[in-house]
Write a protein that binds this DNA or RNA. Structure first.
Lengths: 140, 140
DNA sequence: CTAACCCTTAAAGTTCACTTTAAGGCAAGT
DNA sequence: ACTTGCCTTAAAGTGAACTTTAAGGGTTAG
C-alpha cells in the first residue's frame, strides 16, 4: 500500500504519516528498491493507534516514550507501569472535565427555556459540579 | 479582588485572564479610577467556565461564539441548539477516544505479563474496540 | 519525449493558545 | 526619595503539532 492509500484509509495526511515516522511514533516503514514506503496492516494499526491517542490529547513526547517502552525487547514493566499510571490519571481527569462540559451543554439544551440569564446558568452548573470534586492550582 | 488573587483562586495565570478578556471569552471587567481590574464572583465563575471548556478541548473561536450566544439579549435558541449539539457530539466523541485510550492503558497494566509483543496487544485492543464501536443511536 | 501524478527529503511556514517582555504607573514600607 | 511589588498595555516570543514548499526522482499514458 502507498502512503496515499494509507492516508485515505486512516484519515491521517501523508505528510503527517511521514512526520510520525520521523518522530518515532510509528515504526520505520519498509521501502522498495527506490525508497518508496510500502505500508502494511501492521503500520496501519500503528497509525490508527497514534491517531486515537492524539485525539485523546496525549502529547507527542509522552506518546513517543510510551511507544518506545511498548516496543522494547527488554523487560521494563516497572517503568511502563509508572508512565502508564501517570498518563491514565491525566486522561481520567481530562475525561471528567469533558464529562462536566458535556453535562453543562446537555443541561443547557434541556433547561434553556427556564433560565433567565447566563449567570443563573453558571451558578446552577457550579452547584452540580461541586457535588463531585474540587479543582485548584496556582499560577500568576 | 485583584487579578492576582483571581489567578490564585482559579489557577489561571493573570496574563491568561487578561488574554481571555481581550478575546471576549469573559465579560469586560470593571476597573477602578486608575484602570485596575476589580474582579468579582461573576467574573470568577466565568473564568472557571472557560477553564473547564478549554480543559475539555474546546477551541477559542467556538468558545467565543458560544459565549456570545450565551450572553445575547435576544432569543437565539435555535442557533444555540445548533452550536451546542455540534459541540456536544465532538466532545462525546473525544470522551470515547479518551475512554478507548484509558481502556488500552488499563488493559496493558493488567495483562502485560501475558503479552508477547506490541502487535499482539494492538490486535487485542482493536478487537475490544470494535465490539463496542457499533454506534447505537440514542438521540432525542 | 513529455506530461501527469505519484513518490522522496529537508527546511521553512502556519496556527493555536498562550507567555514573556518592554515600558510605564500607583501605593505602601523604610 | 527609593525600593518593592503590584498594576496597566501593546507587542514580540514560544512550543507543539503539524503543513507547506522546494527540489528532485520513478512510472505510466499519450
Amino acid at each position: 500500500m502507498t502512503i496515499k492509500e494509507a492516508s485515505e484509509l486512516t484519515g491521517v495526511p501523508s505528510a503527517t504519516i511521514r512526520y510520525y515516522e520521523k518522530e518515532g511514533l510509528i515504526p520505520a516503514i519498509d521501502r522498495n528498491e527506490v525508497g518508496v514506503r510500502q505500508i502494511d496492516d501492521r503500520i496501519i494499526r500503528r497509525i490508527n493507534f497514534v491517531k486515537t491517542m492524539r485525539a485523546a490529547g496525549m502529547g507527542i513526547d509522552i506518546l513517543r516514550r510510551y511507544i518506545q517502552l511498548f516496543d522494547a525487547k527488554e523487560d521494563n514493566e516497572v517503568q511502563q507501569r509508572e508512565l502508564l499510571q501517570e498518563q491514565l490519571a491525566i486522561m481520567e481527569e481530562k475525561r471528567d472535565d469533558l464529562q462536566f462540559a458535556i453535562d453543562h451543554l446537555t443541561f443547557k439544551l434541556e433547561n434553556r427555556a427556564h433560565m433567565e440569564n447566563a449567570e443563573a446558568e453558571l451558578r446552577q452548573l457550579e452547584k452540580q459540579h461541586e457535588e463531585k470534586g474540587e479543582r485548584g492550582g496556582d499560577e500568576n
